[in-house]
Design a protein around this nucleic acid. Structure first.
Length: 624
DNA sequence: ATAGGGTTAG
């Protein structure tokens, strides 16, 4: 393995002027290694080349510099820079652009900039401008990049499609989307005909700005779609939480004969994780194994995440244990999994083990462990972590951490403390923070505080129907019918309709989605027949008759999903229903009784923390 | 034979 610094030892060799072996075969091998992504091997070969007394030339450095950039080894990179100077290659514009790019990718934009400015004007070719513009883009320096582009035009240096790629990349914030759309307008021809990269880059820009619809129309309009186009679109949907679109597009991709690669699977797996689509995910894993992608860190982490969120912690753990190189993503994904499935102790132990391994936690890692503590009722432990965040690790708590702690205190019944914590927050509380307080008020039946939390949460997220439903349920639990009516009026005034609640069950690699009163499912008749039968049985039981809280509910989506599960799963297997708890009404008692009657375990999992529902609801006919 | 650039996880 190459250590940064080791390249320096060979500098002396470069002084000797003897007859030398040709560098050509070495350069060719270097090119091959770079192409295969074997960057460490490439750098080792370079050292070997110097040891053998072979002189590097202008064809050598681009490959080695690329390796330093890819591995983010600025020290080795700057040593290569000195080799470039020693061998007189610095006057070569291509080597210079490689150097600029290397510095920028190692976050040393200043060095790249200095190099660029020091070089005389005639030597600054388009590639040099491109390298620096891309470097600015990589380091989110919007103004510098656009200024350099202006300067390029003033100086009369031609720009090309690669210049455009750099410029488009800086428009990933909604505030810059206007500029990006101008670039799109100017580049229609390139984007569509010549170079799919430009289209892919524009597509990603739209996705990152949240304009998925723009991205999709561009995608549909591209005549030359390559693998990366498909990946960009699939991952775009995945990042914006449009689960059905991801699976839909993935299917279309397979049909159109494009071979998915590791990047494709990362997006699809993340969607499976959010949907709890365990068997789709397992299917993907088999494909991955067949294709031999097993060693990709991104992919392995995506797999762990998928299994962990789907509740298959044994499998997630096994993949995790077998990894030779773990990243913070791997640990966090597993902590999230244990936390989600009620194994808070294990989550905490794992998090502590991560710390003892020397991995520094980041903000997201703390979110995972804090939420695990809150779900498992490990209140003190959670508060301890929270206090350590800034003190030991210098991580400032964001609203997402406060939301966890409010939830933690709230579940423990410490509502006043939760409220005081919100008041003391150095950052503005967001909807999730007040929402957590509101949910806690529902658990503990605190109407007064609920009203306060509701006022705030509605100000921040006026169109989030879930909160209205939550408050209405709080009122109805204390039989405050005026309250319920007030919420109804408020919703009507704001033209908000309660989104139909939805539930789904996974069966044989397909996700079957049900709305309340859903009649479009192919098995509707059977389902209703069985549901009616069950309801009759339920009505006869003593538990049902004696419970004052029973309600004459309508046909909840989860009832349909449960019955579908009963009809289609093996006898004895547990029925897992995913449901957006915040929007759906409850039928706990019904489930409890049915579970006794049919002697099956029925698990209802909360899927509402995933914002994927809007999408699912729109296409309730999709079974895949 | 050399350059700059597009897609990926918690």
């Amino acid at each position: 393995m190459i250590r940064s610094g080791s390249i320096g030892h060979y500098k002396k060799i470069l002084h000797f002027q003897t007859i030398r072996e040709s560098s050509t075969p070495w350069n060719i091998r270097l090119r091959e290694l770079a192409k295969e992504g074997l960057f460490r091997e490439g750098l080792e070969l370079y050292c070997q080349m110097l040891r053998s007394g072979v002189f590097p030339n202008v064809f050598t450095f681009p490959f080695t510099l690329k390796s330093c950039a890819a591995l983010s080894l600025p020290f080795s990179g700057s040593q290569l820079h000195s080799h470039v100077v020693k061998t007189g290659c610095e006057s070569d514009p291509y080597v210079m652009s490689s150097l600029i790019s290397m510095y920028c990718k190692c976050s040393l934009v200043g060095n790249g900039q200095k190099l660029f400015e020091q070089s005389p004007q005639p030597r600054k070719l388009t590639v040099c401008y491109n390298a620096l513009i891309a470097g600015y883009a990589l380091n989110s320096q919007f103004t510098n990049a656009s200024n350099l582009f202006c300067r390029m035009q003033r100086t009369g240096v031609a720009f090309d499609d690669v210049t455009m790629l750099g410029l488009i990349r800086i428009c990933t914030l909604p505030m810059h989307l206007g500029f990006g759309m101008c670039l799109h307008a100017c580049n229609v021809k390139w984007a569509l005909d010549t170079n799919p990269s430009v289209g892919n880059c524009l597509l990603t820009m739209y996705v990152k700005c949240g304009s998925v619809d723009h991205a999709r129309s561009l995608f549909d309009a591209m005549p030359k779609k390559d693998l990366i186009s498909w990946n960009a679109m699939i991952n775009g949907y995945a990042q914006n939480g449009l689960a059905t679109h991801v699976l839909d597009l993935y299917q279309k991709m397979e049909l159109s004969g494009v071979d998915p690669d590791a990047v494709t699977f990362v997006g699809v797996l993340s969607t499976c994780a959010h949907l709890g689509a365990h068997s789709v995910g397992r299917d993907i894993e088999q494909q991955i194994t067949r294709k031999g992608f097993g060693f990709n860190l991104f992919l392995t982490n995506a797999l762990i995440n998928m299994y962990a969120r789907c509740g298959n912690l044994t499998r997630a753990r096994r993949i995790f244990d077998e990894m030779q190189e773990k990243s913070i993503m791997s640990w966090t994904a597993l902590v999230v999994g244990y936390g989600m499935h009620g194994q808070g102790q294990t989550a905490v132990q794992l998090f502590d083990k991560m710390l003892s391994t020397g991995i520094l936690p980041d903000g997201a890692a703390f979110v995972s462990v804090l939420s695990a503590c809150s779900h498992a009722g490990l209140t003190e432990k959670g508060l301890e972590y929270f206090s350590q965040m800034d003190r030991y690790y210098g991580i400032k708590a964001g609203p997402e951490h406060y939301a966890c702690i409010v939830d933690l205190l709230g579940r423990a019944g410490r509502l006043q403390e939760a409220r005081e914590l919100i008041a003391s927050m150095p950052v503005e509380p967001d909807g999730a923070v007040w929402g957590a307080l509101l949910s806690s008020c529902k658990i503990h039946g605190n109407v007064e505080l609920a009203e306060l939390a509701f006022e705030h949460v509605i100000e921040l997220e006026p169109t989030n129907v879930g909160y209205y439903v939550l408050l209405s349920n709080i009122y109805s639990e204390v039989e405050d019918l005026d309250g319920v009516a007030r919420v109804r009026v408020m919703m009507r005034e704001r033209k908000l309709r309660k989104e139909p609640g939805c539930s789904y069950v996974e069966h044989k690699g397909k996700v079957h989605l049900f709305l309340a009163d859903e009649k479009r499912h192919p098995q509707t008749k059977e389902i209703h027949r069985m549901l009616d039968g069950l309801q009759d049985l339920v009505n006869e039981t003593d538990v049902w008759k004696q419970n004052p809280k029973k309600k004459s509910e309508g046909i909840h989506s989860e009832k349909l999903a449960i019955v579908f599960g009963l009809l289609n799963s093996q006898s004895g297997a547990e029925i897992v229903v995913m449901k957006n708890l915040r929007v759906c009404g409850d039928c706990h008692l019904f489930i409890k009784v049915v579970s006794k009657i049919v002697d099956r375990k029925i698990v209802v999992r909360d899927a509402s923390r995933f914002h994927h529902f809007r999408d699912g609801l729109c296409s309730c006919n999709d079974y895949w």
